[in-house]
Amino acid sequence: MISRRTGARFRLSGAGLVLGGVRVLQGVDLAIEPGEAVALVGPSGAGKTSLLGLLNASRRATEGVVELNGVDLAGLGQRALRRARATVGFVHQDFALVPNVRVAQNVLFGKLGGRGFLQGLRSMVAPREDDLVRAHGILERLGIADKLYQRTDTLSGGEEQRVALGRALFQDPVALLADEPVASVDPARARDLVALMQELAREDGLTLVVSLHDLEIAREFFPRLIGLRGGRVALDRSMGEVREEEFAELYRLGEAEATRAEEPRP
């Protein structure tokens, strides 16, 4: 497929976020160019999901500026904000699908943000044939076209993830964000999945931002690496420039996190 439009340009300067009294991001300066593919790494609690939330416009930065294609998100009203969200596809870590409707409906829900109320409702009750054909095309690219009319909760984890990806693509997005897509599938599938997302983003000219635990995969597939630590950008380089000791440092962080995860929650 030919890329129909250029991907999203993100620009953050001094962006910070406070959630429930806790500072999760601060002083983030970033520029992500259209069509770039970026891996976001760092221990959990470093603010990866929050940063993706800022890029997706689902969270408002408490300070600083977040720009999507040159538009300052802070200045947008609710309606305009919803329109901005509709242009960014977001694959959640737990897929966040509606379990007891069919795959077709879940994919068609991707357009709930881009259309009016009645059109949106129609996608659940009596979908338009054109939409179904488009959904089928997307699912075919994802390799699960025959699941179009299955109930979503009868699918396997990997298939559900593809449906979530399909929903994001159905949005006709300018950027594709994914939160820990590798964490929920087995390692063999993980590579296929990241490769697939890469390919889709390249074909459609989307900006791709993926948060990852697995440094190996980040190294293998992404030309640019952004490391987060304690809510700040600790590292932002093209992959070739990352020195071995910096990798070691990131690995060490990953191990520290693994031991911390053992501790019981208060």
Binding site: R102, E129, V133, H136, L148, Y149
Partner: peptide, 18 residues
């Protein structure tokens, strides 16, 4: 291929579990 896809959607719909 578009027409094929239309037919395929109709087929899947007819075979959907219900």
């Amino acid at each position: 291929s578009h027409i094929d896809r239309r037919a395929e959607v109709v087929r899947l719909r007819a075979e959907r579990p219900r």
